[in-house]
């Protein structure tokens, strides 16, 4: 090996080294540490670790809490994303035309998206409060018997879903609007001259030409909804059987119960699920790219 190749190699290491070190320190090491601890009885405070073999994993799959959180998270993702998609798309269709005050309406609609989820959670705590919340006061005034939105077992989950929809529908709308605006007007004009019915224009032009970008939006929102944590924390706290998601369950097990070993096993299982979803995600993105969305 000559010396210039050696300098080249040294330079390469010098450039990659810091990143590599950070990666090992903050990604690889925690991952390995997590996997190792998932086979132990590690506790947050004190106690020597002892291997317990696959006992933690056995508990994960037996634990009704985990199954419940998984089911609830899945339900949350499906409901939140589909409602947000439908509402966002309808909003985008309505807002596509130019009208007076469009900018004001758009800006107003985008505000929820700009705010922190924790703040939103607290804000909605006030709005939906069973005793003095605006909603219930209005309902009482109208003669209804208002439910306890945030404390009733049957309502809490749906209230959080409602808040999420309120926060993220604008995001869907924005993406859908971008998709709609990317369709050349001449295609609509061609269809107009071709005597296409409005329904046909929608199903044959608008929808298919928006689909790739909407698909991406769905994926973004789905991964986000899967991590649902802040709203649950702000509205009900992590240890509520009716609203516990995977993220809040993990938080509860590790940081409140202190069961690091069990929590590690939980998170390993979640990791496998996330990897499976990420594969679907990247496949979809590859497909969209190879199809050249803008053609």
């Amino acid at each position: 090996m000559n010396s210039s190749a050696q300098t080249g190699r040294g330079l390469a290491w010098a450039l990659v080294g810091p990143t590599l070190a950070l990666l090992v320190a903050f990604n690889i090491f925690p991952l390995v540490y997590n996997i190792v601890s998932s086979f132990t009885n590690a506790e947050l405070i004190g106690g020597a670790w002892r291997s317990v073999g696959g006992a933690n994993y056995a508990r994960v799959f037996e634990d009704e809490l985990f199954a419940g959180a998984l089911r609830r998270t899945a339900l949350f993702v499906v409901c939140a994303v589909s409602v947000e998609l439908a509402l966002g798309f309808v909003l985008a269709l309505t807002l596509q035309r130019d009208f007076k005050g469009k900018q004001v309406v758009l800006t107003t609609l985008l505000i929820p998206m700009m705010l922190s989820p924790a703040v939103m959670g607290l804000y909605w705590n006030l709005v939906l409060n069973g005793n003095y919340g605006v909603v219930n006061q209005a309902l009482s005034a109208l003669g209804f018997d208002p439910p306890q939105w945030l404390t009733d077992r049957d309502y809490k989950f749906w209230s959080i879903l409602l808040i999420d929809v309120w926060m993220w529908t604008p995001f869907m709308m924005l993406i859908a609007l971008a998709g709609l605006n990317s369709i050349p007007t001449s295609i609509y004009e061609a269809a107009q001259i071709d005597r296409a019915s409005p329904w046909k224009v929608f199903t044959r032009i608008t929808l298919p030409m928006c689909a790739p970008v909407l698909g991406l939006a769905v994926l973004f929102r789905a991964t986000d909804a899967l991590k649902q944590f802040d709203l649950v924390m702000a509205v009900t706290g992590p240890n509520d059987a009716a609203t516990q998601t995977l993220s809040t369950l993990l938080y509860q097990v590790v940081f409140r119960d202190g069961s690091v070993g069990l929590g590690a096993a939980f998170s390993c299982v979640i990791l496998v699920l996330v990897i499976a979803l990420a594969t679907v995600f990247t496949r979809y993105i590859d497909r969209v790219q190879s199809k050249d969305v803008n053609a």
Partner: peptide
């Protein structure tokens, strides 16, 4: 009942 051909073709790309 007239037909218009556009400069930028305006085909339905996914079809």
């Amino acid at each position: 009942d007239v037909a218009l051909v556009f400069q930028n073709f305006s085909l339905y790309p996914s079809k």
